[in-house]
């Protein structure tokens, strides 16, 4: 990891307008509500949070697959949030995505060789012979059998399909790989194979990962730094081991406390903090701190005054009036 900032986002907001089923009037749902973060070259930034908290939307805004409503995103020093589609095109190849569902993201009617070759052909990587050699090289890199190039996605297992998705993402030597729940659909033993592969590839090609998952164990395992999202906001950000061992935000604290643990050592188990209620809807955001209705330590202040994400120590930020472990 270097100190070079590969991507920098400032106050990114993304609103969707949705129509309520009952009354038919448009609602504004703020899926991403003012996110600022930096991703350094060569690191893995993990994003965790529960379903609907805005992880995928944030990721799509960061690579400008979705236009941001406001805020700015810089990639390798260029403000990509200002560029037109056309202006973005040359940068696209440097930012690649790997998705959760290897089944849905691969065209069932094309051979896996063609699927991996597609970005190379679109970007005129070279002659057909050069492209074919590159595809074989990519297959070897991700641990797939070169003899299976002419087979179709359905002939592969979930883990193998995820390798195909990774091979395609790597085809054009990207600098940033955004992986949105890349292992969530896989059995734990296959998940471990894919995570180990991603770690090897990162070392080999000095890749930068934005790694999104709801599995807190997976995120700790892969990340150098972690951001915790709640209702479209980053509520805590810090170095992975730091954040997991000494969470500051009451939400992070509760989240970590309820992950089922194997309990195979004599280390005491974290005391479980069971939150009440459900995650609120982003079109109906609570006043003050978005987390206050479910927060075990909330006071009246929390219902009226919104806490900003404050850097408490270098590299360690939290958005809470009463952070834990802050001393």
């Amino acid at each position: 990891m270097t100190d070079e900032i590969l991507l920098k986002a400032t106050d990114v907001i993304k609103t969707f307008s949705t129509r309520s089923k009952k009354f038919g009037r448009p609602h504004l749902a703020t899926a991403v509500n003012g996110v600022s973060l930096e991703i350094r070259r060569g690191e893995t930034l993990g994003i965790v949070g529960e379903s609907g908290c805005g992880k995928s939307t944030l990721a799509r805004c960061l690579v400008q697959l979705l236009p941001t409503t406001s805020g700015s995103v810089f990639f390798e020093g260029t403000e990509i949030s200002k560029l037109s589609r056309r202006g973005l095109r040359p940068l696209r190849r440097k930012m690649q995505l790997v998705f959760q569902d290897p089944y849905a993201s691969l065209n069932p009617r094309r051979t896996v060789g063609d699927i991996v070759a597609e970005p190379l052909r679109i970007n005129k990587f070279g002659t057909e012979e050069i492209i074919r050699e590159r595809v074989r090289e990519l297959f070897r890199t991700v641990g797939l059998d070169v003899n299976s190039l002419t087979r179709y996605p359905h002939e592969f297992s979930g883990g193998q399909r995820q390798r195909i998705g990774i091979a395609r993402a790597l085809a054009l030597n990207p600098s940033l790989v955004v992986a949105d729940e890349p292992v969530s659909a896989l059995d734990v033993s296959v998940q471990a194979q894919v995570l180990n592969l991603m770690a090897d590839l990162q070392d080999k090609f000095n890749l930068t990962y934005l790694f999104i998952a709801h599995d807190l164990g997976v995120v700790r395992h892969v990340s150098d730094r972690v951001g915790v999202m709640y209702l479209g906001e980053i509520v805590e950000l810090g170095e992975a081991d730091e954040l997991y061992d000494r969470p500051m935000h009451p939400y992070t604290d509760a989240l970590l406390s309820v992950v089922p643990e194997l309990n195979d050592t004599d280390a005491p188990r974290r005391e479980r903090i069971i939150l009440k209620g459900d995650v609120p809807d982003p079109s109906d955001r609570p006043s003050g701190c978005s987390f206050h209705p479910r927060c075990p330590v909330a006071t009246e202040r929390c219902a009226v005054e919104k806490p900003a994400l404050v850097e408490i120590r270098p590299g360690r930020s939290v958005a809470c009036h009463y952070p834990k472990n802050a001393g």
Binding site: S189, A192, G217, R220, H221, Y244, V259, E261, L262
Partner: peptide, 24 residues
């Protein structure tokens, strides 16, 4: 052994996960 070694833990970081070779 493989099943347990493959689980990434929240309580500590393991450098490399154990994998079970091959597919189901």
């Amino acid at each position: 052994w493989g099943l347990l070694g493959a689980v990434p833990r929240v309580e500590s970081r393991n450098d490399r996960l154990t994998t079970i070779p091959g597919n189901a």
